[in-house]
Design a protein around this nucleic acid. Structure first.
Lengths: 218, 218
DNA sequence: CAAAGTAAACTGCACCGTGTAGTTTACTTC
DNA sequence: GAAGTAAACTACACGGTGCAGTTTACTTTG
């Protein structure tokens, strides 16, 4: 399976699409919506073509097949959703809890968003058929975000402002806590969505406990 | 969708199946294997009939359709996998950490088992089409297991042997920790399986931190 | 500058082969 | 007689392909 850039070629500005580029973008947009909404198996190329207002023939002119289109789309979505997470996790040396709260909030913005939940569910659903997408998901976002936090935690530990421990372990446990129990519930449609208040409470509880456990030893 | 008991009618012993009951059980066994292995969409009734060594006509004699068969199977699997978790979580008043470790191990036995991961992935994948299965999963196992731990934690808090807090919150956070980060990795095929050593380490880390955070206030 | 030409992309259609859930039918087995 | 069998059937749906004709955006020519 070849993973190509799904949308417009690099270097083009939005305002100057050739006909071909515009069509390709329409296909990508339609495919993204339909794949995320219905998953791989229940999405049809006819539906995608119709929603993109192109002929199916044209879809095949741009993409060699359904597999390639799906892989391309999902990879693009992973990159898009997660690439900004680590970049938006701002440091503040003064306020450890505030910083970690910021990390948590940025991370949950993505994984608890309706689109994020659907993307995750889609990747899980197709994990057997497209196992590399799980890797993409982790390497695009989760690993960098967690590593970012780990580096920060290591620095705070070095300064004696957090209890000394393996920073990787501490970051892992922190992320377990901030993921919370609601994410599984959303995945399984046991709960419809998480309100901002619920997410704030989740972060509060997780952070309070984590800070308690990692307070500098007395 | 009618959720019926998929296997033999209640009251029968294994050694005395009628022909019809034996056939039904064969269908259930085959369907379970195939649905868990391939998910709903990629499983065919022809395959199920072949694997059960029955005619497809017979499958339809026992189950009204593919939907009903799937729902029935998955519900049965949830009950079977999870019903024993809470029951096998043994109490020990003397040793809090040992008790919680036992709870954790019993819980992880199920959700980290290859079959457990596959079951979970299947339910996630079909969450849109069969949203009630997520509810079954949570109500059959996760909620009782967590509630069991919560009751124990409440008792220990009352005795002043754990730091006073909302027992439900404490149990929730504990379960977030013991679920660990590996479960998502298994779901996404980012990791193939979790070794017993990895699970032990996971429990150790989680418990150590949780106990630290919930040590009685000095 | 307008007309003619060109190449690329697109369209719509028909088609192919395959797979599927569900149904029917005539027969066999217990 | 109830349950099961095997085979065939039905009615779709789907991914993918080839092709003639059309459209579009650009270039060339007079």
């Amino acid at each position: 399976m070849i993973l190509n850039h799904p949308g417009c070629p690099i270097g083009n500005t939005v305002s100057k699409l050739t006909r071909s580029e515009a069509k390709r973008q329409a296909i990508v947009d339609a495919a993204r919506d339909i794949f995320i909404e219905k998953g791989y198996g229940e999405s049809s190329m006819d539906d995608i073509a119709n929603r993109a207002n192109v002929s199916k023939r044209t879809v095949y002119n741009h993409f060699p097949g359904k597999d390639a289109l799906f892989g391309s789309i999902i990879e693009g979505e992973c990159d898009k959703a997660m690439e900004s997470v680590a970049k938006r996790m701002a440091y503040c040396e003064e306020d450890i809890e505030g910083t970690l709260r910021e990390f948590a909030a940025r991370f949950l913005d993505i994984i608890y968003s309706p689109d994020g939940v659907k993307l995750f569910r889609t990747i899980v659903a197709e994990a057997d058929r497209f196992p590399e997408l799980g890797t993409v998901f982790f390497q695009a976002g989760v690993c960098p975000a967690q590593f970012h936090a780990q580096e920060y935690i290591a620095k705070m530990m070095d300064q004696g402002r957090l209890r000394k421990d393996d920073p990787e372990k501490a970051a892992t446990l922190l992320f377990c806590l901030i993921k919370g129990d609601m994410h599984y519930k959303l995945l399984l449609c046991f709960q419809e969505e998480a309100s901002p208040e619920e997410l704030t409470a989740l972060i509060d509880d997780a952070l309070e406990m984590w800070m308690r456990a990692y307070a500098p030893a007395s």
